[in-house]
Design a protein around this nucleic acid. Structure first.
Lengths: 153, 153
DNA sequence: TTCCATGCAAACACTTTGCACCGTG
DNA sequence: CACGGTGCAAAGTGTTTGCATGGAA
């Protein structure tokens, strides 16, 4: 997306173009999947300080305009990503933490099945699929991240 | 699940049976989908006061034992539900907020497709599917919950 | 020149943690 | 009667908001 496109998108909905808004959109584009905190860090690397509240407010505006989206891929902060021509959803490995993007088309059959069976229209871009890579140990097998402090003492 | 079953599950992993732990499990069972806050409220209705931190700690223990699970169905707190014989996942309507449980079997084809195509094993019980009921207005159409303060003033 | 956007700081929502006391096994 | 569990309060994260100032159009 070009600067002028962004300006037009903003102005078209009554918003103004500002350097912060451009920087924040650029950061989301560069990071692929980033929390507000990570976006803030990225922005500050490339330019002067920007306030955290501006990041939150801007991400909200960009999401309203349909330029970015967020999903809850961890138990902590949400992660934002740019909306591209090809919608995608995410596979999140609980063992290694890797996030894989998958073209939304690959969920087409599933989506249609849910619509037919439940009268429910799935938002494919907001689908978060949790599990484990086949090459990763199953969750809890050895104890990487959380829990299992004393599961068998 | 009977009281004795719960006791055995706890003891089998080195935990103790306490009235709080039983109350909290009962609350999760009764509420179907509840945030820690809602669990706390439910527990307090049925009995003496229990502390919020105990709810958090107990939900963690119950999840470690595989008796409950949580998913992020909103942008706020996670919701907990009991693990039953028949695994299920959730459809979350962004328009009306309704949560529908769907038998995990209905995702079998999708799960297999992801495994074959990406070497990724989906955790069906932790699948949160967002979208809208067909009978609900599309998100943002009229403005029910959040955003759209001045999207076109 | 008009308002929207930003920075700053305080307030919030949700969760975790340290510590002394309580109660299960 | 040992040691895990609880309550309480304080500290942590992550996010939102009120208000005065700054800047885009």
């Amino acid at each position: 997306m070009e600067d002028e496109d962004l300006r037009d998108r903003l102005r078209g909905s009554g918003y103004r173009m500002t350097p912060q808004r451009e920087l924040i959109l650029r950061a989301v584009q560069a990071l692929e999947h980033a929390t507000p905190d990570e976006v803030l860090a990225e922005v500050r690397q490339h330019s002067a300080a920007v306030n955290a509240s501006t990041v939150y407010r801007t991400l909200e505006v960009l999401e309203t305009l349909g330029l970015v989206r967020h999903a809850h891929l961890t138990d902590r902060a949400p992660t934002y990503h740019v909306v591209e021509e090809h919608e995608h959803f995410h596979l999140v490995c609980r063992a290694c933490g890797k996030v894989t993007s998958v073209d939304a088309e690959q969920a087409a059959a599933f989506v249609e099945q849910i619509r037919a069976g439940h009268g429910f229209v799935v938002d494919r871009g907001h689908l978060a699929v949790f599990g484990t890579c086949e090459v990763c140990p199953p969750p809890g097998a050895e104890d990487e991240q959380e829990h299992s402090h004393h599961a068998s003492r």
